[in-house]
Amino acid sequence: MALNTPQITPTKKITVRAIGEELPRGDYQRCPQCDMLFSLPEINSHQSAYCPRCQAKIRDGRDWSLTRLAAMAFTMLLLMPFAWGEPLLHIWLLGIRIDANVMQGIWQMTKQGDAITGSMVFFCVIGAPLILVTSIAYLWFGNRLGMNLRPVLLMLERLKEWVMLDIYLVGIGVASIKVQDYAHIQAGVGLFSFVALVILTTVTLSHLNVEELWERFYPQRPATRRDEKLRVCLGCHFTGYPDQRGRCPRCHIPLRLRRRHSLQKCWAALLASIVLLLPANLLPISIIYLNGGRQEDTILSGIMSLASSNIAVAGIVFIASILVPFTKVIVMFTLLLSIHFKCQQGLRTRILLLRMVTWIGRWSMLDLFVISLTMSLINRDQILAFTMGPAAFYFGAAVILTILAVEWLDSRLLWDAHESGNARFDD
Rank of each mutant, 00 (worst) to 15 (best):
L165M: 13
I177E: 03
R62S: 13
P10V: 12
L353S: 14
Y394E: 06
P87Q: 07
Q33H: 13
P219I: 08
V317M: 03
K342Y: 11
I303Q: 11
S39D: 11
Y289R: 01
S305N: 06
W140C: 15
V331N: 11
F393E: 03
V170R: 00
A83I: 03
W415G: 08
S39C: 13
H46K: 11
Q344G: 15
N291V: 15
D60R: 11
R17Y: 10
E42Y: 05
L263Y: 06
P32T: 14
A312S: 13
I91G: 01
V16A: 07
V198A: 13
V313M: 06
R221D: 10
W408S: 05
L263T: 08
D381I: 01
I330V: 13
S206G: 14
N148S: 06
L352N: 10
R258P: 06
S39I: 15
N101I: 01
Q7Y: 08
P254F: 01
Y168T: 15
T374S: 12
D27N: 13
V16I: 10
I371R: 00
I98A: 07
G293H: 05
A196K: 03
P24G: 13
G61M: 15
K342P: 15
P284C: 09
A268K: 00
I287Q: 04
P24H: 12
N44R: 09
W408I: 03
I288F: 04
D427L: 14
R294V: 04
E228F: 07
V210M: 14
P41H: 12
L213E: 04
V198Y: 15
T201R: 14
I322E: 08
V179D: 08
T134A: 12
D297A: 12
R53G: 12
I167F: 04
L255W: 06
V203N: 08
H340E: 08
S286G: 08
G61D: 15
S65A: 12
Q186F: 07
W359L: 12
V16T: 12
R17M: 09
W64I: 15
I360E: 03
K12W: 09
W84Y: 12
S301V: 09
S262G: 06
S420K: 09
L257A: 06
S45M: 13
A268V: 04
W359T: 14
V163Q: 06
L352G: 12
S176F: 07
I299R: 00
E211F: 10
F369W: 08
I360V: 11
F192A: 13
L234A: 09
R225I: 13
F194L: 12
G142F: 05
C54M: 00
R62F: 10
T9G: 12
L78V: 05
L413V: 10
L377T: 05
E296A: 12
L208N: 08
L154C: 03
S262Q: 03
D114M: 10
L78R: 00
L413R: 06
L414I: 08
S135H: 02
L255R: 08
V195I: 12
